[in-house]
């Protein structure tokens, strides 16, 4: 289990992280979200023991990172922001070094390096200096380093940053495959990642936790949740359709997008709109291109809880 208790960090008069508390259990994948500068990386660094906390403490499987750092760090795989490594080394040598520091040796080490480099498809570049590799490869070398000793706890600061869509997919698959047995904390500002891998999301803004829930409940906070959007063919009369929708008893209000030539109807609380609007559209024979029930928009939730003006 990872536990953070009142973690805070001051940089001079600036309070970068302000009393963050949470705990993560095995099997959970916690997504750490927040705008740039919200304190994500500082929190990750405190959890991993790189930055000392100004107040509060962090605990990895019962070992406090400040008073029992070696025990805690042994159980930890940490990917720092930007996946730094030693540029003049080749990935093979680099993994050898990390493995030996982590107490692996001989056949066991070789076997782990083979497994991990197969998993992250490092085979073709194992003997090339890391500084000559592409950003995607460098990131994957960093990931290989974090999982080499098969730690029970993973802390990954922006693991998919700089990867192309295929590589992102691979890394998410990897995280999902490991998720059941491990405790994983990832920080990201890519919202689709939360949907793809996380079982829980914490959003921080200005150093504080502003939301801590599952991605589903988070998405339900969206005002778009259960709204219905109709996209019409250009032969239809958008104003007339909007007018009819607004007159429905279940509809609270509507929003028109002239550019998309679509209208979104928002339900009164608890009302179900899809069948009502579907029936109406069928009866009136509106020339529709698309009719969809909105699940909610994570980016809109994110914006509304991380910017003070919108809240």
């Amino acid at each position: 289990m990872i536990r953070a208790e009142g973690l805070s960090k001051n940089y001079g008069p600036l309070r970068a992280v302000d009393g963050i508390s949470f705990s993560v259990r095995p099997g959970e994948v916690l997504g750490f979200l927040g705008p740039n500068g919200a304190g994500k990386t500082t929190t990750m660094r405190m959890l991993a023991g790189f930055v000392p906390a100004s107040a509060g403490y962090a605990e990895i499987c019962g070992f406090r990172i400040d008073s029992q750092p070696l025990e805690a760090k042994r159980l930890l795989g940490y990917l720092p922001e930007g996946a730094p490594s030693y540029g003049e080394m080749a990935p093979g040598e680099f993994l050898q070094f990390i493995g030996r520091i982590r107490g692996l040796s001989g056949v066991a080490l070789k076997k782990r390096i083979d497994e991990v480099s197969a998993r992250l498809q490092l085979g073709p570049v194992l003997k090339q200096p890391i500084e000559t590799l592409s950003k995607g490869f460098r990131r994957r070398v960093g990931l290989a380093q974090t999982i080499l000793h098969d730690p029970p706890v993973l802390i990954l600061d922006e693991p998919t940053d700089g990867l192309d869509p295929n590589q992102k997919h691979e890394v998410r698959e990897l995280i999902n495959a490991m998720a059941a047995k491990k405790i994983i904390v990832i920080s990201t500002h890519i919202l689709e990642e939360v949907d793809a891998v996380c079982t829980r999301a914490i959003i921080i803004a200005r150093g504080r936790i502003v939301a801590d829930e599952t991605p589903e409940t988070l998405i339900h906070r969206s005002r778009y949740h259960n709204a219905v959007t109709i996209r019409l063919a250009h032969t239809a009369d958008l104003a007339a359709v909007t007018d009819e929708l607004r007159r429905l008893a279940e509809v609270d209000h509507t929003e028109v997008d002239e550019h998309e030539y679509s209208v979104t109807a928002f339900p009164k609380s608890g009302a179900a709109l899809l069948t009502v609007i579907g029936d109406l559209a069928g009866a009136r024979r509106w020339p529709m291109e698309n009719l969809r029930l909105e699940a909610g928009r994570l980016d809109e939730v994110f914006r509304s809880i991380t910017t003070p003006e919108a809240a």
């Binding site: 991993a48 790189f50 720092p80 730094p84």
Partner: peptide, 14 residues
């Protein structure tokens, strides 16, 4: 400068 200090200091070494 390269940031590798963050890697080194989070490995289990004193």
């Amino acid at each position: 400068k390269s940031g590798s200090i963050e890697l080194l200091m989070t490995l289990p070494v004193t």
